[in-house]
Design a protein around this nucleic acid. Structure first.
Lengths: 197, 197
DNA sequence: GAGCATAGTGAGGGTGCCTCACCTTGTCGA
DNA sequence: TCGACAAGGTGAGGCACCCTCACTATGCTC
């Protein structure tokens, strides 16, 4: 839980409590949950919440920090894989689980991708970069069609994450479908093996 | 523009104006645009807006009515196609364009799919049914993998529609990717031809 | 334990949602 | 032409949320 060093003890305590309660609340009510209610649930004045997290996105960003770090590390680890296609699937699935943690989160991520000033922006950029590396790798070995852009993959992944939240579907499954498509899997001896598997 | 027969002239006039302005506003600001502002832009009191459309979803439903009808008819027409896979793609693309008309619309559609009481519900159901027929047809001839459910296809389509809105991507392209996946297209003489093309 | 930087507070101004008791007017029969 | 009334229009009001900021409280350091 970075970002709480050098604080006064009461401030650190409140920050941690806010993050804990915000996570529960967003999980239950989505990212549009009332900040007033979060503060109330913490027994903290609304002004204190805003002192710690000046915007809703700053709060989201703080909540996502650890997961984003882990996503970046994972991408670096996976970029050595000798099955780049599966590496991409695995990473996208991890991303999808992250993006579908709260209802509305995937949309927030999509929306802030363009907005430089957003608190989430840097956060999102690092994820996009990580995805870009894995995608390029999979494309190099011919495991992914060369004509899709990182932005498109990112969009589809966010879309699948968002959809899974609303419908209650398994994000892993949807993201595998994104990679494989609705096209029937090749079976039998005559289809060329899929590269990179 | 159904739903305005037998009304008083002033009411019909206001209803039409509301729909026109709401469409412009949702297009610009997304489905979360302020209803107060729509009423103001119409030069109409807020109570009048609510008299015509008791909920935001009722307003959306009215706006979508014509397009949904057209989607249903199109599905019926396409269900005879001798290239069921392309028929599915075409329909999904039309649906995607509809669902990405306003930012947030795809999510509203997803969210109301489960909520029986929503004004959009019937609207959405007719679209789901239409998609179901085309999907089943494509699966029958082996053009689409048999293990995807209509709900999954619907979720992916909405996800792609939503994502295209936020990113400014082409929904047609994203929906074709949903069907084809990120897998490289088969080329050369040895790959089995894709059925249903 | 004094001083102060850091942190907490919550009223207040702004906006939006939706309702409802009351007013206005289009329409239709006489 | 006109009167009655049902259909329609109105907007203040109650509620909730957002965010700010002038003020108060308190951990921490020396």
């Amino acid at each position: 839980m970075e970002g709480s060093t050098g604080m006064r003890a009461d401030a650190r305590h409140n920050r941690e409590r806010l993050l804990r309660v915000a996570d529960e609340t967003f999980r239950r009510d989505g990212v549009q949950a009332s900040l007033t209610e979060i503060a109330r649930a913490c027994g903290i004045a609304i002004g204190t919440l805003y002192r710690h997290f000046p915007t809703r996105e700053a709060l989201l960003q703080a909540l996502l920090h650890d997961r984003v770090t882990s996503l970046r590390e994972n991408a670096e680890r996976l970029s050595d894989s000798d099955t780049p296609r599966e590496a991409l699937v695995e990473w996208l699935q991890e991303f999808g689980r992250c993006a579908s943690a709260y209802q509305g989160l995937a949309e927030s991520i999509l929306a802030t991708a363009a907005a430089e000033k957003s608190d989430l922006h840097a956060c999102v950029e690092s994820m996009r970069a990580a995805a870009g590396v894995l995608l390029a790798r999979a494309q190099q070995v011919g495991a992914v069609r060369p004509d899709v852009s990182p932005a498109e993959v990112f969009a589809l992944a966010c879309g699948a994450g968002a959809a899974s939240q609303y419908v209650g579907a398994d994000p892993d499954r949807l993201l595998r479908l994104v990679v494989e498509g609705l096209t029937p899997p090749r079976t039998g001896p005559d289809g060329p093996p899929r590269p990179g598997r």
